[in-house]
Write a protein that binds this DNA or RNA. Sequence first.
DNA 1: CGATCCTTTGAGAGGTCTCAATTCGCGTGG
DNA 2: CCACGCGAATTGAGACCTCTCAAAGGATCG
Lengths: 240, 240
Amino acid sequence: MLALKTQDVTRSSGARRTGFTEGLPGGSLEDLFLASVRKSVAPREIVVCEGDSSESVFEVVEGVVKLYKLTPDGRRQVTGFVYPGQLFGLSLQGACIYTAEAVTRVTVVLYPRTKLDHLAARVPGLAQRLLSLATRELITAQEQMLLLGRKTAVEKIASFLVAQAADAVARGGDGGSLYLPMTRADIGDYLGLTTETVSRVFKPLKEHGIVSLRQQKYVVIHDHATLIDLANGNLHGFEY
Amino acid sequence: MLALKTQDVTRSSGARRTGFTEGLPGGSLEDLFLASVRKSVAPREIVVCEGDSSESVFEVVEGVVKLYKLTPDGRRQVTGFVYPGQLFGLSLQGACIYTAEAVTRVTVVLYPRTKLDHLAARVPGLAQRLLSLATRELITAQEQMLLLGRKTAVEKIASFLVAQAADAVARGGDGGSLYLPMTRADIGDYLGLTTETVSRVFKPLKEHGIVSLRQQKYVVIHDHATLIDLANGNLHGFEY
DNA sequence: CGATCCTTTGAGAGGTCTCAATTCGCGTGG
DNA sequence: CCACGCGAATTGAGACCTCTCAAAGGATCG
């Protein structure tokens, strides 16, 4: 891997054929690839800021990005983590409605929104592909609303771990061990909890042998079934 | 208005040109209109149930529908209220991921998903139109996550009233008075609160003259500015 | 190897929930 | 048109879960 400097920007080669455009007729998308820009972003760096006018849709190629919204007094809600192959910035009409911040070192590709819109009107399947992505996000968002509005701290953490494990499997991981590059504060802000509560819930999970931490950010899942039970509110004898 | 019976179903006339298809090339959508079905649903009746396999996308023509998800032990999260002109069921791939229940007497139009998908691939603009709707929903969902995860009860209620007022204006209302056909329990389940807390927050809002209730379900907004402040966490001297 | 940020742990406060009873409002039927 | 009945809304008291504030203990990076 090349050692890219912070905010390193390069023209994207016209040869990309992975990610959200995969399988679509190649020739018609040349314009898009030629107009796309590849960018490397350092951890903790802001990619786009809530309220900014952004003219791009972003595809994460490498690393993890977190999206969050803020209340006027600084409380934070992480609305999602974006992994390689996923897009963000699709849902901005004019001004960006959330902040995107790199969790790890990240490589993103920027597609000009005007060009994407233009192509979506002409290339069969492109708008449908985007719709499918938006729809999937919507399903995730609704699940998250149930979590935020109606689940307890234990259920939230368990749900989070189960979902992250499933995501990891979908990306080719083994499901048994989990790399969570985000901080406890990020996890808390994603689940509507404080950092302290995240820690306090992790402790008994470790003590019961349900999970363990290889390192700070590597979680090993020993008892996936119990985790699912906890996520669904079956606390059968789980003391916290 | 015709007196329709519960679950009354009729072939949709091919002449509809309002709602989400407005402005799209007419001829190519004849198929869709001919295949669409109009249905009338009584209050409290289920339109589609979480887990059901539904082959349709629904457009609300009249009335209000609430969408909700349930935890295994019956806790409920209302993910949205759907008003005339809006769609739901777009985000189902195979099985429905939420329950849709009529709040008032409702008229919906069912579009077969296969037909819609088929047309989306050919009619320029249709997929984009759907994408735009999904995108708007996504923005709302993200705002709701901030509310559910990070706002207090007062902020939640204030935010809800402000948002409902804005919606009402967008639908042609005056913004000063508000018809809320849903119950307190529905509002609570939408905001991640209990019925009791909704009531307890409404009381001081009324006492401070910020809102009043003409009837149980008609809210009059007297001080919109303060409501916005409360929604944003500026509780400047607001005792609760 | 030091500095800094992140995480963990503790004690206490507070906001929201639970459970229960009462009141209210609306639709129904006389 | 009015009385009735039932679900919905309100109100109250107490419990509980999560937060806040504070400090100590780790981990990671230069």
